[in-house]
Design a binder for these strands. Structure first.
Length: 817
RNA sequence: GCGAGAGUGGUGGAAUGGCAGACACGCUAGACUUAGGAUCUAGUGCCUUGCGGCGUGAGGGUUCAAGUCCCUUCUCUCGCACCA
């Protein structure tokens, strides 16, 4: 069989689509709200390596879905753009002196060409790149809104610092104590930073998850990251000091068991609480802790360390003095940076008390435990139970004890109900060049002054050196003529902010810019925003579970609160595509040499084969290995479709059997495409084609619907086959495209079989099969089953205990010896 | 350690609690040929000469019936990791 001319076909149709703007979309009011869909891909970072086979997986899925929706009468917004600010281009600039804009634009061009070569139905008139001034003008504008809302502030806390990237990192960017990007060990550094108050939105971000159709694991990851917990604040008085020591605990019911306190080494009260005798050891410990990296303080040092401060606090319920220690197992960044030590009911406190010989008092007993409870317990128990050794609260089950002790504390003004989060504010500035300049000015007189909105965009200046200073200042700090400016408020001399925004900034809101990408009056026109938003389907990798997807939701909620967007959640439905592994079942990587290049596949097998194969590999959501042999199988399927199309088209009626198969196929492909189960939809099309390709002549009634079904999957071949079909109808004129044709309908009646194969089981084992008219009643099934000779052999001499009949499916005869 | 997900032929994978292995790859045999990642036909879970038996990581359970539901357990992948 001749190889089908995919090179010509694919080039031809890609040109046609481009020239005729086939996929250009407008806010046509004729479509009611329920006939509009916004289907979004996670836009790529245009790396120097070019497109990866992973990219087309999600892009093909959404493309098929969009084409399917259009053919079903929907107005579909399906845009693409580029996440174009980022470190690799800047690092390349440091090595070669080439401006990041030059490399980035070259990479964007390459990515665009590669993406277009796959025949996706994007509206390219809406393309955006986050590094373009007319785009980042609005990123800066959003920053100003955050600033005005009091959600952006400067801070000088010790932060995660990547010595290799020479920049600060957000908590979300640190994995296993390493920089997520370059795997360098993260150290701590104290420099001035811009921080966004994402914590203010913690509850809203949590609640919003209940409203969206996202994979549960992703929701769970976000919930865990936000890490809300309920408990109580307790104020311990400090004999000899005016201050009190506040701690946060989720187990106020264990207060009677608090036998010591621990402060984080960074806690502000440490100097005041340290007695003369203990000063030397405390100072040494504090210094040692400051020197350690986070990793050393956690992973490598599970053995508890700490020193006594020499001071005591009063346990508010027992009135006893308990010693105050410092230890690095208490984190300054969570709660109040201080804890009460309840060794009997907290593993960490148990370890600490054991290490330093501190008293351990049991205050919670398991249900049924009888005591006595006056001895030191043998093991730490964290489970709920009932209170013991807790005075008036004895006997209360844990939840009730928590309530009552909290109320008791509140009444005396020494404690109250409290809520805490693991989520920290978002460290938003980077000490690098290739990012959005933060649009604020530092004035000696007026302090921090935001730029006026009319002065946006604040352009990135040209620099001679891209090398980060490494001292905590960006390369922008080395350009005096840019840094030195005048204060917009007082007109006096002032300095520009030299930090830039992280890469997440541009990707936080790109889905909004796609709506109205050329608007220079607003970041999006409100009417257009209302027309499309929110995003109906968002497809991308799971690696963004807590980074991009949390940041985006945060910004979106702020934009909602200031009234510039109409929904409080941006992405209604999220689907994560699985990773495509190498043929060796390992993650694709240059070092393993198992990388598949999409360009090679397109050149050798065509874009349609690539698309259909990636969808045929398995379910969209799971990881699966690449197999070139599997690709060949799909390629043969398309070859066969082409070969079949070369047969003479006839208007005669197809056989009843094939008509039935056609209607079953339309039904299954329609359903499976709608639910994104592309692999089984393709399988059904293969079954159909295997039968139809046996014919000598091709009935139009079979072939037309099949071409329509195939066309979202293999759009170039689809167009070509459609054109071939319609030559006699003379509608191959300009503007005609299979993508504008109507999706085929099926007749439910024609999908039903007249005869059903009935399985006959004896004691659950298949002993015979009967063919009976569909809908045969139970009585008939029973009679026919019992009449079967094979069945008779198996039930001879036995008594029938039970007889189960499932209509149109099976008969199970349960017999006893 | 905690949390989540996944374990089905030689391979990728199908299966509203009702015929396990659709579809595809690979393999075997045959046909054909303009030797092409051809094409066509038949076969292909394991054991057994056969009747038949056994099979969805392992072990229990519920059910007339379990890949599917429940419990226990193992392995792998991912996420979090002293968050009080």
């Amino acid at each position: 069989m001749a190889k089908y001319p995919f090179e010509n076909i694919e080039k031809k149709w890609q040109q046609r689509w481009e020239e005729e703007k086939t996929f250009h979309v407008t806010e046509d009011p004729a479509y009611p709200k329920n006939k509009r869909r916004y289907v979004l891909d996670m836009f790529p970072y245009p790396s120097g390596a070019g497109l990866h086979v992973g990219h087309p997986e999600g892009y093909t899925a959404t493309d098929i879905y969009c084409r399917f929706l259009r053919m079903n009468g929907y107005n579909v917004l399906h845009p693409m753009g580029f996440d174009a600010f980022g470190l690799p281009a800047e690092n390349y600039a440091i090595q070669t002196g080439t401006h990041p804009e030059v490399t980035t634009m070259a990479n964007v061009d390459r990515f665009r060409a590669q993406i277009k070569a796959l025949g996706f139905s994007y509206d390219w008139d809406r393309e955006v790149s986050t590094c373009m001034p007319d785009y980042y003008k609005w990123t800066q504008w959003i920053f100003l809104q955050l600033f005005k809302q009091g959600l952006a502030y400067e801070s000088e806390m010790p932060i995660n610092w990547c010595p290799s990237c020479k920049t600060g990192l957000a908590n979300e960017e640190v994995k296993d104590g390493e920089c997520e990007r370059c795997h360098t060990k993260v150290t701590r550094k104290r420099i001035r930073q811009w921080v966004l108050k994402i914590t203010v939105y913690a509850d809203r971000l949590l609640e919003g998850l209940d409203k969206v159709d996202w994979p549960e694991p992703i929701k769970l990851m976000q919930r865990n990251w936000i890490g809300r917990s309920e408990g109580a604040s307790v104020h311990f008085s400090l004999p000899g000091h005016k201050e009190t020591l506040e701690v946060y605990t989720t187990r106020p019911d264990t207060l009677f068991g608090a036998t010591y306190m621990v402060l984080s080494p960074e806690h502000p009260l440490v100097p005041a609480l340290t007695t003369k005798e203990c000063k030397a050891s405390v100072d040494a410990y504090v210094q040692e802790a400051a020197r350690k990296s986070d990793l050393e303080r956690t992973d490598l040092a599970k053995d508890k360390t700490g020193v006594f401060t020499g001071s005591y606090a009063l346990n508010p319920v027992t009135g006893k003095e308990i010693p105050i220690w410092i230890s690095d197992y208490v984190l300054i960044s969570y709660g109040t940076g201080a804890i009460m030590g309840v060794p009997a009911h907290d593993e960490r406190d148990w370890d600490f008390a054991k290490a330093f010989g501190l008293p351990i008092i049991q205050v919670v007993a398991a249900a049924g435990e009888t005591g006595p409870f006056d001895r030191e317990p043998e093991a730490c128990t964290v489970a709920d139970g009932f209170a013991v050794n807790s005075g008036q609260f004895n006997g209360l089950p844990t939840p009730e004890a928590i309530k009552q002790i909290t109320a008791w504390l509140e009444k005396r003004g020494i404690g109250e109900k409290a809520i805490n989060y693991k989520l920290r504010d978002w460290l938003f500035s980077r000490q690098r060049y290739w990012g959005e300049p933060i649009p604020v000015i530092h004035c000696n007189k007026c302090g921090i002054v935001p730029l006026d909105e009319k002065d946006l965009p604040l352009l990135l200046p040209q620099v001679t050196s891209y090398t980060p200073t490494g001292t905590g200042e960006s390369p922008l700090a080395n350009i005096p003529e840019w840094v030195n400016t005048t204060c917009p408020k007082c007109g006096g001399p002032a300095k520009r902010e030299t930090n830039t925004m992280p890469q997440w900034a541009g990707s936080c809101w790109y889905y909004l810019r796609f709506l109205d990408p050329k608007n220079d009056k607003a970041f999006v026109d409100p009417a257009i925003e209302k027309y499309w938003m929110p995003v109906d389907l968002y497809v991308g990798g799971a690696e963004h579970a807590v980074l991009h997807l949390l940041y985006s939701r945060f910004w979106h909620k702020v934009l909602y609160d200031i009234g510039v967007v109409s929904s409080d959640e941006p992405f209604l439905r999220l689907v994560n595509q699985g990773m495509i592994l190498g043929e060796d079942n390992q993650k694709m990587s240059k070092s393993r040499g198992n990388v598949i290049n999409p360009d090679d596949i397109i050149n050798n097998f065509g874009a349609d084969s690539m698309r259909v194969y990636e969808m045929f590999m398995g379910p969209l959501e799971v990881s699966k290995p690449w197999s070139t042999a599997g690709l060949v199988g799909v390629s043969r399927f398309l070859e066969r479709a082409w070969a079949t199309s070369e047969k003479p088209i006839v208007d005669s009626e197809p056989s009843a059997e094939l008509t039935k198969l056609l209607h079953k196929t339309i039904k299954k492909v329609s359903h499976d495409t709608d639910t994104l189960n592309f692999n089984t939809a393709i399988s059904q099309m293969m079954i159909f084609l295997n039968e139809v390709s046996k014919l000598e002549q091709l009935p139009r009634k079979l072939w037309e619907p099949f071409v329509l079904l195939l066309s979202p999957y293999a759009p170039h071949l689809g167009e070509e086959l459609w054109e071939k079909l319609n030559i006699s109808k003379d509608v191959s004129a300009k503007g005609s495209s299979v993508s504008k044709a109507a999706w085929p309908m099926y007749d439910e009646a024609l999908t039903l079989d007249e005869e059903k194969e009935i399985v006959v089981q004896v004691n659950g084992k298949i002993r015979d099969k009967l063919v009976l008219p569909a809908g045969s009643d139970e009585e008939t099934l029973r009679e026919k089953a019992l009449a079967s000779a094979k069945v008779q052999e198996w039930i001879a001499g036995k008594t029938i205990a039970k007889l189960i009949v499932v209509k149109d499916k099976l008969v199970n005869i349960v017999v006893k010896a």
